[in-house]
Write a protein that binds this DNA or RNA. Sequence first.
DNA 1: ACACACATGTAATTGGTTACATGATTTC
DNA 2: GAAATCATGTAACCAATTACATGTGTGT
Lengths: 196, 196
Amino acid sequence: MRRNQTGYVILGLLSIESNQSGYDIHKTIKGSVGYFWGESYGQIYPALKRLEAEGLIVSSQSTSAGRAERREYSITPAGHKRLEEWLALPFRDDPPRNELLLKLFFGREAPPSVSIKHVQEYQDGLRRLLGILLETEKIGRARNSDNPNLPFWMLTLTFGVAQIRAALEWSDSALAMLSSAEAAAPLNPPPAENVP
Amino acid sequence: MRRNQTGYVILGLLSIESNQSGYDIHKTIKGSVGYFWGESYGQIYPALKRLEAEGLIVSSQSTSAGRAERREYSITPAGHKRLEEWLALPFRDDPPRNELLLKLFFGREAPPSVSIKHVQEYQDGLRRLLGILLETEKIGRARNSDNPNLPFWMLTLTFGVAQIRAALEWSDSALAMLSSAEAAAPLNPPPAENVP
DNA sequence: ACACACATGTAATTGGTTACATGATTTC
DNA sequence: GAAATCATGTAACCAATTACATGTGTGT
């Protein structure tokens, strides 16, 4: 486990709640860190095996009658230690690739309506996500009022909300700029080459 | 070329300025879309060959005396068409993986000082990047006052600035929260297991 | 009967970085 | 003479998604 973060997400989630299956972990990720971190089964199941081989987690076959076979994992003291070590390591912050911005950057190569459509679609997505985050926040607060993790979870939520609000404001000004360009420009602008 | 965006970045840049080498393109990317899009040589050179084989760009060996050998590329009409088609396609907006948020989410597993350090480091990075973006904006405006691409380029810059400003505000409140937690909590909080 | 949620995994493929390999020219 | 920049490319590796493959239990 070098810089394969999957393992650490799993350790983190198991440190909060034990006896989770691979399926559970996948669901939990979607419902908690999902808006800034995703993992697929193709990552989770192999990672679980690796973590167990390293002694960072242990599993037990759960054979409750009338239920699909299920392997439940829990974190070990060694796993806890490993998680803490990772937490103290500097995070790396890779500049996220933003395909919307890339298309806007080259927006002059297409009619303004193309860029307008993209920004509107972006707005829709932002509003949808904002609704989800605010809902998550409300439910999370209500259901975890005495959970010592709550302040940390809220930190990640308020970050998302702040980013979305800023993006929504920006998108309004972007649409204003683009529609004035649409009014001024011909339908399909001639490609301007060699304009450094 | 399915959803390999590298090709489109190259087409886009060549549509703005022709006669660029692979080396040029790499540099241009870093200096223009670099803060939201990166490409390595390992992607660029193979992509150039592929694009030329598809007839979307053409190359010419530049053999100016006293200069390293250099192959310069320009976009073809077919390349232009392909670029426009791609621009009109819906962008996909993958939830960016945010390692800082991931570590903050599990922040309760480590002393508050760990999270504090991360946020401070994040702030430093934000301030540095903000300075670069504002500088880029100033220079870009001055050097491209009559460039029809300028409004689109500014769109991407103002987006970055807005996001960074929001993130800086958030980070202040995050630090306030974390330092109050540090005052209240023991140095290393006992791991709380099974708190759903 | 059908659909949906529970449950576990592997294989193929893609996308991407990093390290390696090489060499010329310019600047200090 | 050394270091930085210009210049081109390949190979190894890693991270991750997607598709494939399979089966049970529950609710309508």
